[in-house]
Amino acid sequence: MQTNLNIQPLFDTEIEVLCPATVANLVCGFDILGMALQDPSDRIRMRLSKEPGIRIQHTDEYKLPTEPAQNVAGAALLDLLQAIPEPVGIEISITKEIKPGSGLGSSAASAAGAVVGANYLLGKPFSDEDLVRFAMAGEKVASGVKHADNITPCILGGVTLIRSIFPLDIIGLSAPPLQVTVVHPQIEVRTSDARQILRKEVLLKDAIRQWGNIAGLVAGFLKEDYELIGRSLEDVIIEPVRSILIPGFDEVKQRSKAAGALGGGISGSGPSIFMLSKEAATANSIAEIMKQVYTQLGIESKVYVTSINSKGCEVRITG
Results as ranks from 00 to 15, higher is better:
residue 20 P to A: 05
residue 101 G to Y: 01
residue 104 L to G: 10
residue 13 T to I: 15
residue 32 I to A: 04
residue 51 E to Y: 09
residue 48 L to R: 02
residue 177 P to K: 10
residue 261 A to V: 10
residue 47 R to L: 08
residue 249 F to H: 01
residue 251 E to T: 15
residue 188 E to M: 12
residue 301 S to R: 03
residue 84 I to F: 07
residue 93 S to F: 02
residue 228 L to Y: 10
residue 22 T to Q: 04
residue 146 K to F: 15
residue 146 K to T: 15
residue 26 L to Q: 08
residue 41 S to E: 12
residue 36 A to H: 10
residue 229 I to D: 04
residue 185 P to M: 11
residue 207 A to Q: 10
residue 303 V to E: 09
residue 317 I to N: 12
residue 317 I to M: 09
residue 104 L to F: 10
residue 117 G to C: 09
residue 219 A to T: 11
residue 98 I to P: 08
residue 46 M to H: 05
residue 111 A to T: 08
residue 149 D to Y: 01
residue 49 S to K: 05
residue 284 N to A: 10
residue 32 I to Q: 05
residue 211 W to P: 02
residue 7 I to G: 01
residue 40 P to V: 11
residue 232 S to T: 09
residue 137 A to Q: 14
residue 211 W to Y: 14
residue 24 A to V: 08
residue 153 P to F: 01
residue 210 Q to V: 02
residue 50 K to F: 00
residue 195 R to M: 07
residue 184 H to T: 06
residue 127 S to K: 03
residue 228 L to I: 07
residue 230 G to T: 06
residue 21 A to T: 11
residue 27 V to F: 06
residue 305 V to F: 01
residue 114 A to K: 01
residue 150 N to A: 12
residue 171 I to V: 15
residue 102 S to Y: 05
residue 175 A to D: 00
residue 231 R to N: 15
residue 186 Q to T: 11
residue 139 E to F: 13
residue 61 E to I: 11
residue 143 S to Y: 14
residue 22 T to P: 00
residue 87 P to E: 12
residue 154 C to F: 00
residue 279 E to W: 05
residue 303 V to L: 04
residue 271 P to Y: 01
residue 290 M to C: 14
residue 185 P to F: 03
residue 35 M to P: 05
residue 158 G to P: 04
residue 171 I to P: 04
residue 278 K to L: 07
residue 126 F to P: 09
residue 20 P to T: 03
residue 215 A to Y: 08
residue 140 K to T: 13
residue 230 G to W: 00
residue 245 L to V: 01
residue 200 K to Q: 11
residue 70 Q to V: 06
residue 13 T to Y: 08
residue 259 A to D: 10
residue 313 C to E: 03
residue 172 G to M: 07
residue 277 S to E: 11
residue 43 R to V: 12
residue 3 T to E: 14
residue 245 L to T: 00
residue 48 L to C: 10
residue 166 F to D: 15
residue 190 R to F: 06
residue 183 V to C: 12
residue 100 P to D: 07
residue 261 A to W: 09
residue 278 K to T: 11
residue 159 V to F: 01
residue 23 V to R: 00
residue 312 G to P: 08
residue 195 R to D: 05
residue 62 Y to R: 07
residue 296 Q to E: 15
residue 178 L to S: 12
residue 166 F to C: 06
residue 47 R to Y: 00
residue 295 T to E: 15
residue 175 A to Y: 14
residue 316 R to I: 14
residue 305 V to E: 02
residue 221 F to Q: 02
residue 304 Y to N: 03
residue 189 V to S: 01
residue 31 D to L: 02
residue 62 Y to A: 05
residue 235 D to L: 03
residue 117 G to N: 06
residue 148 A to H: 02
residue 279 E to D: 12
residue 61 E to F: 11
residue 287 A to N: 07
residue 24 A to L: 04
residue 19 C to A: 15
residue 281 A to E: 14
residue 91 E to G: 03
residue 177 P to D: 08
residue 45 R to G: 07
residue 114 A to F: 08
residue 289 I to G: 00
